[in-house]
Structures are given as C-alpha cells and as structure tokens.
C-alpha cells in the first residue's frame, strides 16, 4: 500500500544526474539499420547465446557422433558386408541427418523467445520485419555446421575417404546448410503456432524421423519394396543425400544439386512469409 507519504527524494549525486542527463541528450538517432545489418545483428545475438551456453552445441554434436558409430559398427556388417564399405556409403547421409535434426531447434528457440518480453521490444523497432527471424536462423547455421563438421571429422578418423576431396566435402556441407536454412523455416512456423517448446520439439522430430528413415541414407532404394521405393524417390531428403554423396564422392550431378536448391528455394518462399506473418500477428 502506498500510504506513506514519499517525496521521491534524489538518490543520486549531482554528477550521477549529470551523466544521466548527458546520456539522455546524446541519444541521437542514426539512419535506420539496413535489412542486412539488422539480420547480422540478430545472427550475432544467436551466436552470443551459444557462446554463453555452449552445452547447446554438445547436444547438436553428441547425437551425430553416436549415430555414426552405431550405424557403422552395428549395421555395417549386416547391410553392406563390411563396416568400411558401409561407412563410405552412409557418411554423407549421416551428415545430412545430423544437420537437419538441428533445424528443429530454430523453432524451439523461437517458441521460447515468444514468451519473453524482449520480443515486444524487437517488434516495436523500425526494422525490416523478418530480420529477427532471418538473423536467428542464419545464426543457427553455426549449430548446423558444427553438427556436420563433427560427423565429417569422425568419419575421416574412422576411415571415410571422400574422392571429391576437400572441395567436394565443403561443397557438400554448403549444399546441406542451404537446405537446412530452408527447412528451418518450416519449424519456425511450427514454433509460432504451437503452444510450448516441447510440443515444437516433439512435432518437429516426429515429422522429420519418417522423412529421414524413408530416404536413401541407410539403404539403396532399389532394395526396397516398390511402394516404399516410390516414396523414397520423391522424398526431398533423398535428393539432398544424392547430391551430397555425389559431391563427396567426386561424381556430382549438376541436375541433382539444382533439384535440391530448387526445393530449398520453394520451402523458403513458402515458409518465410508464413513465419513472418505469424510473428507479426503474435501478441
């Protein structure tokens, strides 16, 4: 209760007041941030968060390590007859899988953000509207890249030998990151329509699992029953794995890569506007 009369007497010294007065007076407005500068600042925000909570990166990198070891040594012998051959076959696919799983976190992070007051501030700034989203997803590429890089390095240690050389491997990772950037927008949309971070995570993984397992990551589609093979053939993740394998093996097909980039462009074109719309309307 505010029943005690208070005067709000000055609590700071004259020099402190002077510093405040000066700080208030010197807040002149610079020209507006360009769309690019705003995205860059938001990407920086994402990277700072990873810096402050590096455990996040552990999540993104430990699972891929486990997957690589598990698939190579448990199934290698059974599926391909030798672990070495199977590693050669499966590694590009594990890179794809590991990177794509990290994209769900973009949606989870956005969902968490929306419950915090800071989003109100971002939305009240004169900015290119999608900047907070584009910047965040771009910043998340760090996580995606770490997941991919860990798998490649582990693969090299275990005996994976990419005929495509350094350039082929880097090109492959780049294509996977481009596709991951596009796919992340599906999950940011999900992040804005779902009620809780864990709902986003569950739905995201539930959507991703069948697409990952019903692709050509683990087995050649020709060995599958016809109906399954048909699905695997139209699955965009199959296309991405084919392009990645091609680049790493040094026999990339331009058409495969173009198909992947086209699919990425399509996802982006649909889901960036959708996410932006939900973000604008959230409140």
């Amino acid at each position: 209760m505010s029943t005690t009369p208070t005067t709000g007497a000055a609590v700071s010294t004259a020099s402190e007041q002077e510093a405040l007065r000066k700080a208030i007076a010197s807040g002149t407005r610079p020209p507006r941030a360009s769309a690019f500068a705003a995205c860059r600042a938001f990407a920086w925000r994402g990277i700072l968060k990873i810096k402050h909570v590096p455990e996040q990166l552990m999540d993104a990198t430990i699972t891929p390590v486990l997957f690589t070891l598990m698939f190579t040594y448990m199934f290698g012998g059974a599926i391909a007859g030798s672990t070495k051959d199977y590693l050669q076959f499966i590694l590009p696919g594990i890179v794809v899988q590991s990177v794509l799983f990290t994209t769900v976190y973009s949606g989870v992070a956005l969902n968490t953000d929306m419950t915090r007051g800071v989003v109100d501030r971002f939305r009240s700034l004169p900015l290119w509207r999608p900047a907070p989203l584009v910047g965040a997803v771009a910043g998340d590429s760090i996580r995606a890249f770490s997941a991919g890089a860990v798998v490649v390095v582990l693969g090299l240690i275990l005996g994976f030998r990419p005929d495509g050389g350094v350039l082929g491997v880097l090109g492959a990772i780049l294509v996977v990151l481009v596709f991951a950037f596009a796919l992340a927008w599906v999950f940011t949309t999900l992040g804005l329509v779902m009620r809780s971070p864990s709902a986003v995570m569950n739905t995201g993984f539930m959507a991703l699992f069948p697409l990952i397992f019903l692709s050509n990551i683990f087995v050649a589609p020709e060995t599958l029953p016809a109906a399954l093979e048909a699905f695997v053939d139209v699955n965009p993740i199959t296309h991405l794995v084919t392009a990645t394998r091609g680049l790493m093996d040094g026999n990339a097909d331009g058409g495969d890569i173009a198909l992947v980039l086209g699919e990425a462009a399509l996802l982006t074109a649909i889901f960036i506007p959708l996410t932006s719309r939900y973000y604008r309307k959230a409140g």
Partner: peptide, 11 residues
Amino acid sequence: ENLILLGRLLG
C-alpha cells in the same frame, strides 16, 4: 550485449 544489440538494430 543487450545495449550493443539494440544500438546495431537502431542503425
């Protein structure tokens, strides 16, 4: 970092 971020976002 908060204040730097806002400064950058404001131009």
